[in-house]
Design a protein around this nucleic acid. Structure first.
Lengths: 216, 216
DNA sequence: TGATTATGTTTACACCGTACACATATTATG
DNA sequence: CATAATATGTGTACGGTGTAAACATAATCA
């Protein structure tokens, strides 16, 4: 099949969507050897083209990285969205599940995390699509928090402040985990999921004395 | 002076502590052009030596980066320690001040942050001194939390869980800030310090409905 | 003083990002 | 259909990078 598809701009005419092949190759390099292992030339070789071919699809290396990061954001968004069980549960539980999903994503795809948040791509000068992808991922959490506030499950207040509290905490924990930068008493004392639930519990109930005891 | 100091092992005999000069040069490169701008050869040139000279002091590039990261940890530790005012204040306030100090450090020294937490150095196989430096920085916060728990200011519970909650949140916020990865409604709506205080307030008082209203 | 060690230089190699000129396949246009 | 324009890929080239090996020299030690 597909012998006669000259009208499809999605996969180009010679190689057959080299752009996508380069993103895939970049991902593989990234997963295998970390950020240091990602190079345009190696990606080109994996895709079976010359080392200069990528420049027909990406302005420079950073553009490739940005494309990979964008894909990573999409995956993260999907993971966060899938975390909410079909039967709508209590908001506190939904928040915990979403946090676990974030941390699990960080552990399952450390290469994506590095590319997205590792400072490889200059988010200020990056293509707008990447920024939008990031905002979309954040929007999933923000919506949950906003709904929780509207439903009275979360305290009234600035939604973005609350959402950012949760985002920062889970993001920080995920980064520390994927960097293996956790201080030793926490390294493997418990599973990442259990620790994530503890963190969320502390954020929900507060750590200051006088706050009501956490339920579960 | 210092014509006759053949007994000091701290600064070597030919160049005069090239190791330190290389760290300084690396820092400058890092501050000026980000991680991508840091190279052994450029550092050697800044130090006025040949491009192979660094290998007498660092096994490879990662060793230089690790040394820089270690210095960064020391600076961070000092900043955190200095955040506690000489007159011991309430634990909640001290925690907030420490969080602000962390975020200010992230904003003032983004290059250090990148090197320490940006995945440039493989913390698993890094020299032990780097790990100790990291644990020392974390220990400053942990001590504060432990003291707060002992004094009854913070809720009784696992100290490390609580400390990690705060560390993760502040670390995540600092990383997002220094990456300029904050979602747009938060980008510059308020100052980083004000937002940091809000985050800490949420962690202290909890965001779940039913928690007591935050005091301030 | 002579040997050893610490430190730095030179040379060399493979790899990298990227620019440029060129070739070719597709598409558009007369 | 013929041909021009465009999209895509190749080859070559240049400077920069990490790092290894051989060599040179300065400091220290026996």
């Amino acid at each position: 099949m597909a012998i006669r598809v000259p009208k499809k701009p999605a996969h180009a005419y010679q190689h057959g969507n080299l752009r996508h092949a380069l993103i895939q190759a970049g991902l593989r390099l990234l997963s295998e050897g970390g950020v240091a292992n990602l190079s345009l030339r190696a990606a080109a070789q994996l895709a079976g083209v010359s080392h200069a071919a990528p420049y027909r699809h990406f302005a420079d290396k950073e553009a490739l990285v940005a494309a990979i990061a964008e894909e990573g954001f999409a995956l993260l968004t999907a993971a966060l969205q899938a975390s909410t069980p079909p039967t709508p549960a209590a908001f506190a539980k939904r928040l915990a599940e979403m946090a676990v999903a974030y941390v699990n994503f960080a552990l399952a795809h450390p290469a994506y995390l590095r590319v997205i948040f590792g400072g490889v791509v200059d988010k200020e000068h990056a293509p707008q699509s990447l920024r939008i992808a990031g905002e979309t991922a954040y929007g999933v959490l923000r919506t949950l928090v906003a709904d929780g506030v509207a439903a009275g499950a979360f305290r009234a207040g600035d939604v973005d402040e609350m959402a950012l509290s949760c985002w920062s905490m889970v993001h920080g924990f995920g980064m520390l985990l994927s960097d293996r930068a956790l201080p030793p008493p926490l390294c493997e004392a418990v599973t990442a999921e259990a620790m994530t639930r503890s963190l969320v519990k502390h954020l929900l109930g507060g750590i200051e004395s006088g706050a009501p005891p956490t339920k579960s």
